[in-house]
Design a protein around this nucleic acid. Structure first.
Length: 556
RNA sequence: UGCCUUGUGGCGCAACGGUAGCGCGUCUGAUUCUGAAUCAGAAGAUCGAGGUUCAAAUCCUCGCGGGGCAACCA
């Protein structure tokens, strides 16, 4: 609904315009082209939502194409995780699953064609020599001594490169463009390198592999992509993208670049993410603190919320830093209307209701989701001894504290109004038990007596114990990336494991992946570490907490 | 001292020569058996200087500032 009223971003505007002018014969075809060398993260989600979203909105088709041109870095494991993550996000490539490696033969033929046209040559320069000849950002490069090798020799040498006659790095195939170009990408870019390495899909069929620039545009062309959307760092590559297609005279898609996503309090570079995992700063790629899709899934972020987020951040060309708070807002908004409620006590404190008969149990009716009546209600057992949150009792309450304290009344959610009559302390003077009396006339729903506070609880004898993992920002700083020593700002308290929590019995059989709102504390998701007799919940995101703000403001 | 790109509230995105608007965040207040949600309201912006024009965020100059690019990575 919101999208229909929103003015389209510049990419959708271009697509709409070109659709209106029938530039592409009524087709809209996009592609998401990951390299299978790592896990997908929220930044990739932006690109995926854009690529598949645009195709969907214009009645076109989105392709998934693995850009697998570098056998030394890519693995099947990543292919599978990427497919799973994209499906989980909610997108479908239908029949259109492709691999750049499927096009190796065609690419080879086209390379031969460029050689014949005098637009490519075999170079004997070493990697270092090529770099040296390339010049610098401000100084032009120099031609390779092999640049004017006769076509016939180039043809012969290139065939022998493919045949495996030369060792790794001995020769390359280069496009003959302009060693003095201001755009460094145009200084005779390498098209093929020799790598005697086996590829995750083509095995040992090849020992020469195309580079990104040579593979990408031609793959787009083969698939008859209309709009090839990529991030800004490829902007300087567009002239080369266009050059190859024009030199070949084949179908020519339009490349459009947009700014990649940056999110506060985290890092989104594959290298850094890998470091977090390999240095065991986090538990793995799917650690709930990670900005990976697998991490967010485990944490309990719904795919709908992530898509909504990608929708709201927009698409532009300027450098951006999206506040994590926006993502959290999207998660809360989605979960608020869908997550069933439950009561759980994270930091337990025992309450004894002195005038409630020992051994007596009452069943209280609790609404499953006040936002959605169709989700029904459940029974919650109530007895003489209860667990409440330590934060919900203060022996010496500060001003505006609406919860339990000596002589003060609060409502127990869905149950009775109770009044604190006294406390029991241990030898260290800490309150270990709170004594109360209840008013039988105030049972859930009946009495309309006003009390300032309502707190949640769990019956001691019916409680199930659980482990709860609380997460905070992985980094303390807004832009950890900015610092050379980015790991210094890792939040030492980003994970807090509470081993001694109690949840209401209705939650006893929750299955991994199920999401709940624990009333007054936050949204939680059952972790796969859950085993029979051992419940584990991840806090997806806390509820907004006006009291915490107030208290924080007072302290300052 | 090359090439490409970009400057609108704290953050992100609109306004395409005609009253600068939206979302998040922040702050009030109402309401509430979740200090949640919801509702109402507030504060807060066009990088600078010149021009063109009745009128400029928008067009033109000149400054200043961000980002990217020199793998046989993608």
């Amino acid at each position: 609904m919101s999208t229909s009223e929103k003015t389209p971003d510049f990419i959708r505007a271009i697509v709409a315009e070109e659709t209106a002018s029938n530039k592409w014969g009524g087709r809209v075809v996009t592609r998401y082209p990951p390299e299978p060398n790592g896990y997908l993260h929220i930044g990739h989600a932006k690109a995926i939502c854009l690529d598949f979203g645009v195709a969907q909105e214009f009645g076109g088709q989105g392709h998934l194409r693995f850009d697998d041109t570098n056998p030394t870095k890519e693995e099947t494991e990543f292919v599978e995780s990427i497919k799973a993550d994209i499906r989980w996000l909610g997108f479908d490539w239908g029949e259109h699953l492709y691999y750049a490696s499927d096009y190796f033969e065609q690419l080879y033929l086209w390379a031969v064609e460029l050689i014949r046209k005098g637009k490519a040559y075999v170079d004997d320069l070493s990697m270092d020599e090529i770099r040296e000849h390339r010049g610098t950002l401000t100084a032009p490069g120099r031609d390779s001594p092999w640049r004017d090798r006769p076509v016939i020799d180039n043809l012969d040498l290139f065939a022998r490169m493919r045949a495996g006659e030369f060792p790794d790095g001995a020769k390359t195939l280069r496009a003959k463009i302009d060693m003095a170009a201001g755009n460094v990408n145009l200084r005779d870019p390498v098209m093929y390198r020799i790598r005697h390495a086996s590829h995750h899909r083509t095995g040992d069929a090849w020992c020469i592999y195309p580079l990104y620039d040579w593979a990408h545009g031609q793959s787009d062309s083969i698939e008859r992509i209309t709009h090839s959307l990529c991030t800004m760092e490829y902007e300087d590559h567009r002239p080369l993208y266009d050059w190859y297609l024009d030199a070949l005279g084949i179908y020519h898609p339009r490349q459009i670049e947009f700014a990649r996503l940056n999110v506060s309090h985290t890092v989104l570079s594959k290298r850094k993410l890998l470091q977090l995992v390999s240095e065991k700063i986090v538990a793995g790629w799917d650690d709930p603190r990670m900005p990976t899709l697998s991490g967010m899934r485990r944490r309990g972020y719904p795919p709908e919320a992530i898509r909504d987020f990608c929708d709201r951040i927009g698409v532009g060309k300027t450098q951006n830093l999206i506040e994590l708070a926006l993502l959290e807002h999207c998660v809360r908004e989605d979960l608020n209307k869908r997550a069933p409620r439950g009561m759980a006590v994270l930091h337990p404190l025992k309450v004894v209701i002195e005038n409630f008969p020992e051994g007596k149990v009452e069943e209280m009716e609790a609404v499953n989701n006040p936002e959605d009546a169709t989700m029904g209600a459940r029974k919650v057992p109530f007895a003489r001894e209860l667990w409440i949150e330590q934060d919900d009792f203060r022996e010496d309450p500060p001003p505006k504290y609406f919860r339990l304290s000596p002589g003060v009344e609060v409502r127990l959610r869905y149950a009775y109004i109770i009044k604190c009559t006294g406390v029991v302390k241990n030898e260290r003077g800490e309150v270990v038990e709170v004594h109360c009396t209840y008013d039988p006339a105030t049972r859930g729903g009946t009495a309309d007596r006003k009390v300032k506070g309502t707190i949640h609880w769990v019956s001691v004898q019916h409680a199930r114990s659980a482990e709860v993992r609380l997460y905070d920002h992985l980094f303390l700083t807004l832009k950890p990336d900015e610092s050379e020593d980015w790991k210094a700002s890792v939040n030492p308290n980003s994970l807090e494991r509470l081993m001694n929590c109690y949840v209401e019995p209705a939650l006893a059989n929750a299955a991994p992946g199920e999401r709940f709102q624990f009333e007054r504390t936050g949204y939680f998701c059952v972790d796969p570490d859950t085993a029979p007799g051992h419940l584990v919940f991840n806090r997806t995101v806390s509820l907004r907490d006006a009291w915490a703000r107030l208290e924080k403001a007072e302290t300052r």
